[in-house]
Every structure is written in structure tokens, then in C-alpha cells.
Amino acid sequence: MKKMIDPLIALRHELHRTPELSGQEKETARRIRDFLSPLKPEQLLTMVGGHGVVAIFDSGTPGPEVWFRADTDALPVNETTQLDYASGNPGVSHKCGHDGHTAILAGLAEYIALHRPTKGRVLLLFQPAEETGQGAAAMLKALKALGFSPEYAFALHNLPGYPLNSVIVRNGTFAAASRGMVIRLKGRTSHASEPEKGMSPAAVMARLMVDLPGLSNNGDLKGYRDFVLLTLIYGNLGSPAFGTSPGEAVLMATLRAYQNGDMELLSNTAAELVRRHSDAAAMGCEISFTEEFPATMNHPEAVQFVSDAARSLGLPLIEAGLPFRWSEDFAHFAMESKAALFGIGSGTDHPALHHPDYDFPDKLIPTALKLWKDIYQRLQE
């Protein structure tokens, strides 16, 4: 096993040393392609939905089409560790463990190359741009255009705060829907000594900063089916010019919901509130949304494959009581298949995801690879 794991750890360290942001994963994709090429999949696709790489192992006989996905992009976070393989790109680092996820899936590719599918076909997706919510949708569109359509889809994500090598599953919503809301208030500048001759957005902005977070349900459903949350994340009013009363303001918020229908209701309600306040002040406004992630909805049949694999390997199995509040663009694959996104514990005291001190634990690679192998074998039975 060590002979198989050591090259995967080396691959992870190489990826960690050379991280690339969402949409810029050119060298990451090249390294993945170079690793996969000697395995001789039936097809090796590149530039799929951006810098996506897909290895296709096709039995040539009828059977399920199964997708396994790993994410490949890094974060705009400056690394604070003193690792031998620390990031060589200032301000960019793998602080979500995508380097580890990629190495694990590369290990599954090696295994499948030696144990080819006897029915159906298996697609291993190395997906860019997960952090911005754009990669999965782009890959899905590109692969569907080529005639691929998943019956099952699987992805894992390491989870600090859970016991090392534990497996965390949940039927239904696993990760919340989220989207960024951008509000631009448009008034009119004036001299600061004559504010009455302008139209400052300050009062409207202040009201919105109070009222928008109040749309979160905080246990009171308020017409929603489940949990919703609105968090203000940025605000800017005017400029640091003491002689000028401001004419424009920008306010940004992150919206989250456990149900896709609730996300639409929250978005519409928030937009209506903004328009009501701006109209009352006879002020213009522009509203846009970005980085949109649907809720990741797990299918019971796919979750059962993961649970059975964990039990067969003697791994601690934890059923999450509530969905996770963070989002995952694997949700797009889940909308097209029987899918399961699950967690694998990184350790109860491990630094949190996106923390400058975080590093994917190499000890997870053998365990996660065994899980992928077991799930793959069960789908071939």
C-alpha cells in the first residue's frame, strides 16, 4: 500500500506548492494530465468547462455511468505554515484541501487502470473553479454536449472538527445553497456643507444594514420551509473626501438556505426590501447576484453506497443532524443524478478550512482511497 500511497502524497505536495486560483488552473491541469496519461484511460479529456480534466474508463458494455469528482482550485489566502512544500505563489494556497481531494482521485484512477470496469463507464472529473461556483456547471454542460450523463455521482470533502478518518453522511440536503447579493445605491453628490443639494445614500444604506439581516429566520420560519440566513459582508459609502457628501454606496451580502425554493424566496424578499427603501428615498438602485450555488441534495441510494463502504472498512460513520451551512457546486451534478457528497474527518483539532494554518492531512489519503475503491467495486457488482 505504501508503494501506491507515496506517489499520491508527492502529487499532493507538488500541487500544494503550486496552487492556482479558480479559473487559472492551467498548470494544475497539466500535472493531473501527466499523472493520468500513463494509465491509458479510454479517453482523457482536457479543457472541459475551463481547465477541467476527465479520465474515462469505458467497459464498452451496458451499465451505469458513474462520476467521481475532485476539485482542483486554490484560495486567495496567504499561507502561514513552514512546510517544506509550502505555497510558492504569494497570496494563493490550498486551504480547503483540494490538493488532497485531487491526489485521492488520482489514486482511484490508478486502481481502475488495474481493475477496469466490466460494465458501464466511469468518469473521473478533476474540476476547476469550485470556490466560485462556476466549475461544476461548466463541466456538466460540456460533458452533456459530448453525450455523457451520470446515473451516479460522488464527491468527498475533508472536514476539520470531526475525528480523523470518520465518514460523515446525510440524506437530503448536505450543503446549503448560497449566493452573493450586490446592491448599488445611486444618489447624487454635493458639497459636504450643502448636503441638501445632493442625495446621499447614507440613510438608505443604514436602514438596509439593519433590515436585511433581519430576513434570516433564526428559528422562526417566516414563510420559509427551512433555515435561511443573510449575512452582510461588505459596505462602502462615498470616498474619504471631507468636502463631499456621497452620491453612491455599495452593500454586499451572502444569502444561504437549506432549500433551493427558500433561496429564491429569500433573494426576492431581499431585493424587494432594497427597492422599497430606495424608492422611498427617490434613489436609484441596481441589484445583482453572483457566485450562485444550489443546495447539494444527496440521494438515499448513493448515500447507502457510501455508508456500506464505511461500515465494511470499519470506519466511524456519523450522520449529520443538520445540513452544513457552507456550499458546494457539486450540487449541479446532484441535480442530474443519484448523488452523494460526503465528509471525511480531518481531525477534531485540525485547523479549520480556509484558515492560513490549514494543511490537508496526508493520513487521510489511504482511508479515502479505500472508500473510493469500495464504492467503485460495489457499483461494478
Rank of each mutant, 00 (worst) to 15 (best):
L164Y: 13
L164N: 14
L164W: 09
N165C: 10
S166N: 11
I168S: 06
I168E: 13
R170C: 12
F174W: 11
A175K: 04
S178M: 08
V182F: 00
V182E: 05
L185D: 02
L185F: 01
R188D: 09
S190P: 04
H191N: 14
H191D: 13
S193M: 05
E194Q: 12
P195K: 05
K197G: 02
S200D: 12
P201C: 03
A203I: 08
V204G: 02
M209N: 09
M209H: 02
V210T: 11
V210F: 00
D211W: 00
D211L: 10
L212K: 01
L212V: 04
L212I: 11
P213M: 06
N218V: 12
N218Y: 11
K222F: 10
Y224D: 12
Y224Q: 09
D226V: 03
D226P: 01
D226W: 03
V228Q: 06
V228I: 14
L229E: 15
L229W: 08
T231F: 01
T231L: 02
L232H: 07
I233E: 10
N236C: 05
L237A: 03
L237D: 10
L237N: 06
P240D: 10
A241F: 10
A241S: 12
G243M: 09
T244S: 07
T244L: 12
G247V: 06
L251F: 04
M252L: 01
A253G: 11
L255Y: 01
S267V: 03
N268M: 05
T269Q: 14
E272M: 03
E272F: 01
V274K: 00
R275L: 05
R275W: 02
R276K: 08
H277C: 05
H277R: 12
I287R: 00
I287T: 04
F289Y: 15
T290R: 01
E292M: 13
P294T: 06
T296M: 11
T296N: 11
M297Y: 12
N298A: 11
N298D: 13
H299N: 15
H299Y: 09
P300W: 12
A302K: 04
A302T: 10
F305Q: 14
